[in-house]
Amino acid sequence: MRHIISILVENEPGVLSRVAGLFSGRGFNIETLNVAPTLTPGLSIMTITTHGDEQIIEQIIKQLRKLVTTLKVVDLSEASSVEREMMLLRVDAEGTKRAEILRIVDIFRCKVVDVSPDELIIEVTGEQGKLTALINLLQRYGIKEVARTGAVALRRGMQG
């Protein structure tokens, strides 16, 4: 099962390698990883997506909590949460392809953020499924490069 794990950590040198080293040293896999500071000075949030059965996910969470630099670990897949990832794609857009690509951009509510005579850079935000669907559609035109942020996620507010 895919899990999104959100980790609140002390923002100090070496924290990222403590977390990454824990995953590699214990044979857990990291699918995506995102780190950024929070509004509280000195604290950062890491968002990691990973795969594993219940027992493995439980171990991952406990091991992360055990790191001396960790304040809080939440398995967001347990709660209902909002998940987003941003992706930039450099797509071959020569000649007649361009109009077709722009139509797809429209349908997916993406943005074109850079234009040149024979290619476009497209920005898209969404859940993993949406990003995969877009890649599948654009593949036939030629995707030259992709950069992704990895998932970020937040727990949803109170639900009625």
Binding site: P13, G14, S17, R18, G21, L22, G25, V68, T69
Partner: peptide, 14 residues
Amino acid sequence: IVGITRSCTKHNYL
């Protein structure tokens, strides 16, 4: 040495 011993110490500091 902090990098080397990260996985065999409870914690370490530079």
